[in-house]
């Protein structure tokens, strides 16, 4: 808190606003923006890993594995994503506790599900009942990240599966003619070449991922939506030094603008990235770049 803010009742106009925007709860809101960025930073690579696994499984020669991969892609895409978020957060939590329960308490003889209760032995609880608050919060966040990764992994799997199939057949045939095995062809030919085909889809996915981050609120994480609702609600002078009427509409307007700026910036970066990836590729975009370069002369 700034030193000038000790008695907000005497302040007016801009100083009041400055003090108001630097209260402890507002700092929590700014931290929550960091949470969103952290979620994006962890989820994007994790979803890529899930997606890669899904795409490889869907291409596999082993039939059950192929069904698994294709089923993963199809089911997650056919059902509202919000339902999946709500489902996985509970299902993952119970799944982890159940596994720990089986390992740590092998001689527990009561059923785990009793009517409307889910009972595991005390040492199997996740996190443990006596764990400090930050462990609970981190665990909740980790569950949210895993949920996001599973759902977005299915979308990424779909994109990567398409991209792998888009690599020209002749390239694969040439590799086979050189005597490369299936695995070698995949590692040396398909994977390095698929990115240019995957990039538009992955870029699209990144935008979707950004726009899905407020759903953290539904998963019980104290994110920006949570704080915007908290801070915006009408406050009387009995509970705060900064009484104000219902300002939630302004807080959500700010969030709206935040997301607009974020997606716009991403769009610009993605356009640059895609131009770079198309460089020297035998695709329409690559050809356009080559022509533009030829017209502009060497630089």
């Amino acid at each position: 808190m700034l030193p000038a803010c000790t008695d907000p009742a005497t302040l007016e106009g801009l100083p009041w606003l400055l003090c108001y925007l630097t209260t402890g709860k507002h700092l929590s809101l700014y931290w929550a923006v960091g949470t969103v960025l952290l979620l994006l930073a962890i989820t994007a690579p994790a979803a890529m890993a899930f997606g890669f696994g899904g795409a490889v499984a869907a291409r596999s020669g082993v039939l059950p594995l192929r069904w698994l991969g294709k089923g993963y892609i199809a089911i997650v895409r056919g059902v509202p994503d919000i339902a999946f978020f709500l489902f996985f957060v509970i299902a993952l939590d119970q799944g982890i506790e159940y596994l720990r329960h089986r390992i740590k308490c092998p001689d527990w003889d009561q059923p785990v599900r009793q009517g409307s209760d889910f009972l595991v032995c005390d040492v199997a609880k996740m996190p443990l009942g006596n764990a400090p608050q930050w462990v609970h919060e981190t665990y909740g966040f980790a569950l949210a990240v895993l949920t996001f990764a599973i759902v977005f992994g299915a979308f990424a799997a779909n994109v990567l599966y398409g991209a792998m199939r888009a690599v020209p057949r002749a390239q694969v045939e040439t590799a086979e003619a050189y005597g490369m095995t299936r695995g070698q062809t995949f590692r040396r030919i398909v994977v390095p070449q698929m990115w240019t085909y995957a990039l538009p889809g992955l870029g699209n996915l990144w935008m979707i991922l950004i726009k899905a981050t407020p759903l953290l609120f539904l998963l019980g994480v104290e994110d920006i939506v949570y704080w915007a609702r908290e801070l915006g609600a009408a406050k009387t002078s009995r509970f705060t030094d900064y009484p104000h009427p219902d300002w939630r509409v302004w807080y959500f307007l700010a969030l709206l603008v935040f997301y607009l700026v974020f997606t716009r910036l991403s769009e610009i970066v993605l356009a640059r990235l895609s131009a770079r990836a198309s460089h020297g590729q035998a695709t329409a975009a690559g050809e356009r770049l080559r022509r533009a370069g030829a017209n502009a002369g060497p630089h």
Binding site: A212, P214, V225, F252, L253, R264
Partner: peptide, 22 residues
């Protein structure tokens, strides 16, 4: 088109609700 495609529907719902309340 930019405003409605560039921001999350989730936030649009919240904003709309509180706007209508005001």
């Amino acid at each position: 088109v930019f405003v409605f495609r560039g921001s999350p529907l989730f936030i649009q719902f919240f904003f709309g609700y509180f706007l209508f309340l005001s």
